[in-house]
Design a protein around this nucleic acid. Structure first.
Lengths: 129, 129
DNA sequence: TTCGTTGCAAATGTTTTGCACCTGA
DNA sequence: TCAGGTGCAAAACATTTGCAACGAA
C-alpha cells in the first residue's frame, strides 16, 4: 500500500527544506513554495510535510511555541531555542545518546529515542543586552 | 502589578494536579474541576494553568501529540511518552543536567536549561505485544 | 472601592479532512 | 486505467481574549 507517486510539489518542499538552516514552519514553507507553484495549497504542504516526516526524509520539531518547525537535516542533532528572539538553532555538540541508558535504568519499558530541546539566550541576544 | 488574589478555582486546580501522577491536559483538568465547580469555564482553567505554570507552581509539558499536559510535580525530572498507548510517564532517573555543558561547548549563547522527552514503548505495552 | 478573577462566547491560530478533479505510473 | 496527489473550503482542535458581572482585600 501507499505506492508513493512522484509529485513536483513534494519534491519542491523537500528541496526547499534542504536549503534552509533555520527551521521553517508549515506556513513559511507554504509562502516560499508558492513563489514556484502559486496554486499550491496549505493543505498540500501539511500533507507532504507529514508524509516526508513519517518517511524520515525530514524532521518535525515541536517547540511548544505555537507552530511546529521542520528540519531538512535528518542527521541526529539537538536544538536550541532562544527565549528572547524565538530563533530555533542547530547545536553542534557531542552525542548525548547515552542519556537513554541513564533513563532506562529504573524503567521497565523500552526507550527508543529522545528529543532534547535546550533553551536560553542565543549569541546575538546575549551580546545585544 | 499582578497583586494575585485568592481564587477557589485556582486553588482547586492546583490541588487536583497534586493528586494526579498522570499528566492531564487542560481539558481533563476542566472535566474534573467541573465536578466540584460545575460553572467553571474552560477559559478560566487555561488562564489558571498558564498562571500557575509561569509562577513555577506547576509544570507545562509539551509533547507534540496535540494538547499540552500539566504536571503538579515541580521537582526537576524527565518524561517518557509511549508511542503505542500515548501515556506520559515520569522517569525516576539520575540527573542529566550536565548535557547542558556538553551543549554549550561550541555555542556562543547562554544555555539556561533543557527539556528532554524520551520515547519508546512503555512497560505495559511491551508486555502486551 | 478597587482591581484581579470569572463565565461566556467569539475569535484566533494551527492542522486536518472531505470531495471532486488532476496526474503520474 | 487507476490509485495516489492536489486545490479548495470547511471542519476540527487547542488556546486566547474581550467584556460585563463577580468577589477578595
Amino acid at each position: 500500500m501507499a505506492a508513493l507517486k512522484y509529485s513536483r510539489q513534494r519534491e519542491s518542499i523537500k528541496e526547499f527544506l534542504a536549503t534552509r538552516y533555520d527551521h521553517p514552519t508549515a506556513d513559511v514553507v507554504y509562502e516560499n513554495i508558492r513563489k514556484v507553484y502559486p496554486n499550491i495549497s496549505l493543505g498540500t504542504v501539511y500533507r507532504n510535510l507529514g508524509l516526508l516526516a513519517s518517511l524520515g526524509e525530514i524532521q518535525k520539531v515541536t517547540t511548544g511555541d505555537g507552530a511546529d518547525h521542520f528540519d531538512g537535516n535528518v542527521m541526529p542533532h539537538n536544538h536550541f531555542i532562544c527565549k528572547s528572539c524565538g530563533k530555533l538553532i542547530d547545536l553542534d555538540m557531542d552525542s548525548i545518546d547515552y542519556i537513554q541508558k541513564v533513563a532506562g535504568k529504573n524503567f521497565d519499558g523500552h526507550i527508543e529515542g529522545h528529543s532534547t530541546l535546550f533553551y536560553g539566550t542565543c549569541g546575538d541576544c546575549t551580546n545585544k543586552s
